Amino acid sequence: MFGIKRASAAEIAERNDRAGKVAEALTTAGFPVHQDENVPAVLGALVSVDPADDSRGGVFVQWLIGSSLSRAAGESAQKGEIRSPAFRHFGFVTEHMHATLIAILGSAGFQAVDADDDMNPFLVRVDG
């Protein structure tokens, strides 16, 4: 059985420190920020640390949209109604907040880029 190799304790500590600075920069810019992925009904920017010791590891940010819009967009997608107002609005907000997070973090001195994650296409990777 294969396990995911964790980064060193020093690397994880550095990531946690960077995540804290990212959260502070976003909070200072006026965004609601959360760092606990396990809290239900969280809205705004979610800053997280992945402890993996490979390209999956690092500090990440994603924008979390309200559950009613997410649910409506999901229902539209299941019905194949990708031109529905809810689906279009969800896409618009997600796409623009992704770009906004990258721009705001870049302005704050971070190297923020699209994480290139097929499972989460609007995930932002943040380096030093």
Score class of each variant (00 low, 15 high):
3 G>F: 15
8 S>I: 07
76 S>M: 06
112 A>W: 03
29 A>H: 05
79 K>Q: 04
52 A>R: 00
18 R>F: 01
70 S>I: 07
35 Q>C: 04
101 L>T: 02
117 D>E: 13
72 A>G: 06
55 S>H: 10
115 A>Q: 01
102 I>G: 01
10 A>E: 13
64 L>M: 10
15 R>Y: 07
100 T>P: 15
91 G>A: 14
67 S>A: 12
32 P>E: 14
127 D>N: 15
22 V>F: 01
76 S>Q: 07
105 L>E: 00
113 V>Q: 09
89 H>Q: 15
101 L>D: 01
124 V>I: 06
84 S>C: 08
115 A>N: 03
49 V>T: 07
62 Q>S: 10
108 A>F: 13
87 F>C: 10
90 F>M: 05
110 F>V: 00
83 R>W: 08
121 P>V: 09
37 E>L: 13
17 D>S: 04
52 A>V: 01
55 S>W: 06
91 G>Y: 13
107 S>N: 14
123 L>A: 12
57 G>V: 02
115 A>W: 00
118 D>W: 05
76 S>V: 02
14 E>F: 13
31 F>G: 01
93 V>W: 10
31 F>T: 05
25 A>V: 03
62 Q>G: 10
118 D>Y: 08
76 S>P: 04
44 G>T: 11
31 F>R: 06
79 K>A: 14
113 V>E: 10
64 L>A: 03
47 V>H: 08
126 V>Q: 01
36 D>I: 02
16 N>H: 12
94 T>Y: 11
66 G>Y: 13
6 R>H: 07
54 D>G: 06
27 T>W: 03
97 M>F: 13
86 A>N: 13
62 Q>H: 10
